[in-house]
Design a binder for these strands. Structure first.
Lengths: 340, 340
DNA sequence: ATGAAAGCGCTAACAA
DNA sequence: TTGTTAGCGCTTTCAT
């Protein structure tokens, strides 16, 4: 392998000068610079990133923490693909890389170990909730953390979320404006801040429209398609059956549609439905979902820059909290409806 | 940060002994070992992985290369989630990590650079095809490579694939056994070895059943749902319209179902359909898809071990080629059918 | 403008 | 059984 020494010899300069040229340190004579660059080119030299990391005391890797398999229903391809691409783009500016880590029940300290052993300089956490294990010890160890799609109000940690309160508000208001007076809400578990916020937005929309909030109209799922399917039974048990439903994510919405179809009820015809996420599944369902678009790519990109900046500012610097706007996408699942 | 020196001091031994204990080198007196371990524990010492990498000349990271966004339709959550989890599990035995890299048109040499700068010791490539850029230079640079779901017959490279010939054979035979005599085949681009193999299996099944292979019954998609949708027009233009279709992946199958529905044709009733992958979408479609299950998790796991072993064996060692079996999953999309 | 030299924290060969 | 020591390839001060 070609090392710096060889380049220095070929260019007839010292190794330090080679480094100066490659690191863009100024105060190098143009002629010298050129000689070095030529030698680098001719030899195909590429600095050893590990050695660089070693001396700098930074791995140059950001951990991207995702839930382990059993929770994979939390995110769609769209979700993960968009966020991770966003992160990659965000990190590339800084020549940083993504180390993919799963938080697994059989080894909850995996991420902590990765930080303590300096394999990662900080991390971006996807799909977290209140109960996500190991995050506290990670923060205690001084690991810079940025959550995506999860609020953590600890002043030291950062997050990039969407405005879920407003997203839910838009979804609910859309149904209200379409003339619905009985709107059910199929939410996810309240351990997710997303769920808490969406509930708040739902209630706010009702309140602003002068409508009564009836807890009996709130159903509970776990963001999986199956749980959406299962919720249909509870929905039908409500008396009278609501004419519309706001479902807290598109996967549950897909299950919900299926469940209704089995009892002969068609979404967009008998029942209006609004989902959330604008995941890829939203255009596959029949009918396609009216939903709330979440800018996942942008979120990933922002998370990357926020985290990198935080790492630069040092251990005890404040975290940054960002909420990007959500947007209503109207499709056929929320067509106006005849009474049941 | 706690360093080895401090541990050595506290344990009253030399730094070398600390390393010996931590690396499980034997020939250390039990009492000494204990003292060291206690000091490690008390101080919360964790060896600096970068320094270890540095002296060993290995990053301890495996690149996981995935297609960039525009090609994201190539894989579903299921695909990526399963494979990457498999890789993670496979690598954890060796205490290796996954560096996530995208092959992007704007920087085709990104992966090469990662290898040359020693950020990765080898890589696992997902979603590759014949035209995937940059792989040749990567191999030329001596980077150990293992493909998943793609054959590369270069003796030095490895792959883990499924037996796509047999998979397609099973799918087609299933339709033949159900009494279909005109079976269309919606394939993906032939730049994917998967497509080539599935075509071969399709033809073989026909031949074994004494049926004629009619090229006019072969349609072309690109594995996206949209292309499946678009293929319906061509399918309907075939005269007479085939009674069944084998679709080379589930996403196209989902689009195909939608397209047929728009002209009033229902899969599982008017047309029998078999998909491929057993992706998560296979149970979401209406009707659920009869399909070929691909053991993605297992593939990822195998790819990890194969690659690690290859790295251990050194640069010019032979690659390993593995094909795991595929399995037919019968659901409702291939119910027997009345003639059109 | 450039070179010399001191480390970064560890592994492993060599001594004792 | 344990300690001493020479690097690993680079960045960065400090001299020149």
């Amino acid at each position: 392998m070609v090392r710096r020494k060889l380049v220095a010899q070929r260019a007839g300069v010292s190794e330090a000068t080679v480094s100066r040229v490659l690191n863009g340190v100024d105060g190098v004579k143009e002629g010298t610079r050129k000689k070095v660059l030529e030698a680098v080119e001719a030899l195909g030299y590429r600095p050893n990133a590990i050695a660089q990391s070693f001396v700098k005391g930074r791995s140059g890797n950001i951990g991207v923490i995702v839930p382990h398999i059993p929770q994979v229903h939390l995110f769609s391809t769209h979700y993960f693909g968009e966020i991770s691409s966003g992160i990659a783009v965000g990190l590339s500016k800084y020549r940083l890389h993504m180390l993919l880590l799963f938080y697994q029940s059989d080894d909850p300290d995996q991420v902590l170990h990765a930080f303590e052993s300096r394999k990662i300089d900080g991390c971006i956490v996807l799909g977290a909730n209140e109960k996500t294990r190991g995050i506290e010890s990670l923060k205690a160890a001084g690991c810079p953390v940025c959550f995506v799609s999860h609020r953590d109000e600890d002043p030291l940690t950062s997050y990039v979320d969407t405005d879920n309160v407003n997203g839910a508000y838009l979804a609910t208001s859309h149904l209200i404006k379409s003339g619905h007076e009985r709107i059910a809400f199929l939410n996810g578990p309240l351990m997710y801040t997303n769920s808490v916020d969406r509930l708040e937005g739902f209630q706010k929309a009702l309140a602003d429209a002068g409508m009564h909030f009836d807890p009996a109209l709130v159903l509970q799922g776990n963001y999986s398609r199956t749980s959406g399917y299962a919720a249909v039974a509870h929905f039908l048990a409500i008396n009278p059956i609501p004419t519309s439903v706001f479902v807290a994510n598109d996967r549950m919405a897909a299950g919900f549609i299926l469940g209704l179809r089995e009892v002969g009820l068609r979404v967009g015809q008998h029942v209006s439905l609004v989902g959330y996420d604008d995941a890829d599944i939203a255009t596959i369902t029949d009918p396609p979902l009216t939903t709330i678009r979440v800018p996942f790519f942008e979120m990933g990109k922002r998370a990357a820059s926020i985290l990198v900046e935080k790492i630069g500012r040092g251990e005890s610097s404040q975290g940054e909290k960002i909420r990007l706007p959500a947007e209503l996408i109207v499709r056929e699942s929320s067509q106006s409806v005849r009474q049941l």
